Computed example of a mutant assay.
Amino acid sequence: MALTAGLDCGSVSVKIAIIDEKGEVLLTVYRRHKGHPVDAAIELLRKVSSDYPEFMIVFTGSTGKLMARAAGAAHINELVANCTSTKRFYPDVNTIIEMGGEDSKLIILEGNAIKDFSLNSVCAAGTGSFLDQQAERLRLSIEEFSETALRSKNPPRIAGRCSVFAKSDMIHLQQIATPMDDIVAGLCFAVARNFKGSIVRGRPVPLKISFQGGVALNKGMVKAFKE
């Protein structure tokens, strides 16, 4: 059975998926690399090789190109990988919102091709790293952060374009005894507003939308984008 492994090496985590010749997903594994993407990727490959000893491998992601070159393997641009996989599994999707550890993307699809796209600047504000930083300041794990946001009844407005301004707003909200649930939800809405203002920038966003990347696992962010 001919198998293919896709290894996505991002700024915060590494992910691997193995598919068979029919395109059916046999295995997926996600792991944060804590600043050591190569070591984490090697560990992942060793882990999956015990069950799947032979497969062709393709790399993508922000650090994937260097790994592909070192391994003598193929590398696929992230945008192309997003588009191709989305149309394979969700053919009705016309817009992709992708938020990772340090980058965010808006991809508009037309048929099976990319019609338009927009990326964030070099600043990580409004990305997964931004949320990680704020969760740490509030002494919450990112998993607790996700659940806490859903309990909010009155999310306040918090600056989402800059971590320094966000911290200032959070300190003020804590000083006036704003519930933690509301502060966390406010941060989620701040990130959603930042995405709309700095990445969407007035573009029409056709339905249906697929929310992808590690931030898509954050229930508070899903709620913020929906609302």
Rank of each mutant, 00 (worst) to 15 (best):
Q133E: 06
L45C: 08
S163D: 10
S104L: 06
P91G: 10
A216I: 03
A68V: 09
K208R: 14
I19Y: 05
S198A: 13
G111A: 13
I171K: 08
R161N: 13
G100C: 08
C9R: 03
K153W: 00
V25K: 14
I176P: 05
G10W: 00
H36A: 15
M99D: 03
I142E: 06
K22S: 15
Q134T: 12
L119I: 14
I42C: 09
I107V: 13
Q212I: 14
A2D: 09
G72I: 08
C162T: 06
K105D: 02
R46M: 09
L109Y: 00
S121P: 00
L26N: 04
M170T: 06
I57L: 14
H33Q: 12
S118G: 12
S49I: 11
Q212V: 07
F195V: 03
N154P: 05
K47P: 01
G197W: 07
I199W: 07
P53K: 13
F130L: 11
E143I: 13
G35D: 06
S152M: 02
F225G: 00
S121A: 15
A149S: 09
E147F: 03
E54H: 07
V164D: 11
F55P: 02
A190L: 03
K208Q: 12
I171V: 15
G35Q: 13
I209A: 11
L66V: 08
